[in-house]
């Protein structure tokens, strides 16, 4: 939950938070795709859950993610 909004008169703080939120989202996405694959999800299901095309998610993760034993 975002509890505070950065002071609009302080763009450095606000822009830094944006960059860090993007990084957090990227990392959370990568970790969640890995978890989904580990649990037997296919690329179509992951694409639907992320709201992107199967091609997009496959292109981004097929070479990065391998199913791990759970």
């Amino acid at each position: 939950m975002i509890e505070k909004v950065p002071d609009p008169s302080n763009p450095i703080e606000a822009l830094s938070a944006v960059v860090s939120l993007r990084r957090l989202a990227d990392r959370l996405e990568a970790a969640s795709v890995q978890a989904a694959i580990d649990q037997g999800w296919n690329w179509v299901q992951i694409a639907e859950a992320l709201g992107v095309t199967k091609q997009a998610v496959h292109k981004k993760y097929a070479r990065r993610v391998e199913r791990r034993a759970t």
């Binding site: 939950m1 975002i2 509890e3 830094s16 938070a17 860090s20 939120l21 990084r23 957090l24 959370l28």
Partner: peptide
């Protein structure tokens, strides 16, 4: 520094 930036908006991950 990412942690600090997130903390400014109350996000703790």
């Amino acid at each position: 520094q990412h942690e600090e930036a997130l903390r400014t908006i109350g996000v703790i991950a």
